[in-house]
Simulated assay, not measured.
Amino acid sequence: MPAPIDRDVRVREIRDAAFRLLSERGPAALTIRGLATELGGSSTLVTHFFANRAELLKGITESAIEDYDEEIAQLEQGADARQRLRILLEWMLPLDEEQVRAERGRVMLIGHAESDLNVGEFFVAMDRKMRELLRSHLTGLVDEEDVDETVEFLRVFTNGVVLSVAEHPTLWDTKRQQKLLQHTLELLGVA
């Protein structure tokens, strides 16, 4: 009798494998069969949780968003408001190789945002979550009337760094990203 499968663990494994496939081989490689091969099993390994590609994208989006709150809460334990904002922004940047790989996968999906694969919904949900996180971290640090514009600015900042790292990873090492982040926080008066 096979051992019971922890649904959350398996969904995370599928999600991580999906982002690996996207970053290494592009959106065309993200098929149920390709994902099952990446995971070392048959298609039912994936279809047990996600019936098709559209459902897969929706599921990995939901899984990632659920994990975000837990990850950030752990990182921010004991931090004050300014530290929490810095921690969040560092978390949003691709500061290590695993994050660079994941961001490359997301960048590769951009060209398919208007397809029938629910990729557009992926980007809408992710953007909504990032803006929600930024807004919650900025409240109390910047004047209330400046929160929306500061959220916009920080979304452009983080997206720009992510794209720059995806395009030129050797030019945008951790030190350079953190230096730019520090400058940005100083400009905003929240360093």
Rank of each mutant, 00 (worst) to 15 (best):
residue 84 R to T: 07
residue 11 V to S: 08
residue 51 A to I: 14
residue 189 G to W: 01
residue 131 R to T: 07
residue 43 S to H: 12
residue 51 A to Y: 08
residue 128 R to P: 04
residue 135 R to H: 12
residue 178 Q to Y: 03
residue 1 M to Q: 12
residue 100 V to P: 03
residue 1 M to A: 15
residue 190 V to E: 04
residue 9 V to T: 15
residue 143 D to H: 13
residue 32 I to Y: 06
residue 121 E to P: 07
residue 99 Q to G: 13
residue 32 I to P: 06
residue 82 R to E: 07
residue 187 L to R: 13
residue 124 V to H: 12
residue 172 W to H: 02
residue 65 I to V: 08
residue 30 L to P: 05
residue 75 L to N: 07
residue 90 E to P: 07
residue 132 E to Y: 11
residue 170 T to G: 14
residue 157 F to V: 04
residue 71 E to Q: 11
residue 41 G to P: 06
residue 173 D to R: 15
residue 87 I to L: 06
residue 144 E to F: 08
residue 126 M to S: 11
residue 5 I to P: 11
residue 161 V to F: 03
residue 39 L to W: 06
residue 109 L to V: 01
residue 99 Q to D: 13
residue 116 D to P: 08
residue 54 A to R: 06
residue 141 L to S: 06
residue 79 A to I: 05
residue 36 A to N: 09
residue 136 S to M: 08
residue 157 F to Q: 01
residue 144 E to C: 09
residue 37 T to N: 13
residue 34 G to F: 00
residue 36 A to F: 01
residue 91 W to H: 08
residue 158 T to W: 05
residue 111 G to K: 10
residue 134 L to Q: 00
residue 157 F to H: 04
residue 128 R to K: 12
residue 163 L to Y: 14
residue 15 R to F: 01
residue 143 D to T: 13
residue 7 R to W: 10
residue 125 A to R: 03
residue 140 G to S: 03
residue 127 D to E: 10
residue 98 E to D: 15
residue 145 E to S: 14
residue 140 G to T: 06
residue 23 S to N: 10
residue 8 D to N: 15
residue 74 Q to E: 09
residue 191 A to E: 05
residue 125 A to P: 04
residue 2 P to T: 09
residue 177 Q to D: 07
residue 174 T to M: 13
residue 26 G to S: 02
residue 95 L to E: 04
residue 157 F to W: 04
residue 93 L to F: 08
residue 22 L to S: 02
residue 70 E to D: 12
residue 50 F to Q: 00
residue 155 R to W: 09
residue 29 A to F: 02
residue 173 D to E: 14
residue 22 L to M: 05
residue 144 E to T: 15
residue 186 E to A: 14
residue 88 L to S: 02
residue 13 E to S: 09
residue 116 D to I: 07
residue 155 R to L: 12
residue 14 I to R: 01
residue 90 E to A: 14
residue 9 V to A: 13
residue 112 H to R: 15
residue 151 V to P: 00
residue 90 E to H: 10
residue 6 D to G: 11
residue 144 E to D: 13
residue 18 A to Q: 03
residue 150 T to I: 08
residue 165 V to E: 03
residue 166 A to H: 11
residue 107 V to D: 01
residue 36 A to W: 04
residue 134 L to S: 00
residue 43 S to M: 10
residue 132 E to F: 09
residue 67 D to W: 00
residue 163 L to C: 13
residue 42 S to R: 15
residue 187 L to Q: 14
residue 66 E to Y: 00
residue 36 A to K: 02
residue 96 D to K: 11
residue 127 D to H: 09
residue 60 I to Y: 00
residue 79 A to T: 08
residue 180 L to H: 08
residue 33 R to D: 12
residue 97 E to R: 13
residue 40 G to L: 05
residue 145 E to W: 09
residue 157 F to A: 07
residue 5 I to E: 14
residue 100 V to D: 07
residue 165 V to W: 02
residue 176 R to S: 06
residue 11 V to F: 02
residue 167 E to T: 11
residue 99 Q to K: 15
residue 69 D to Q: 09
residue 143 D to P: 13
residue 155 R to Q: 12
residue 18 A to T: 05
residue 149 E to P: 06
residue 160 G to F: 10
residue 137 H to I: 06
residue 96 D to N: 15
residue 34 G to E: 01
residue 42 S to V: 12
residue 95 L to C: 10
residue 179 K to E: 13
residue 141 L to G: 06
residue 126 M to P: 03
residue 134 L to C: 05
residue 64 A to H: 05
residue 58 K to T: 14
residue 19 F to P: 00
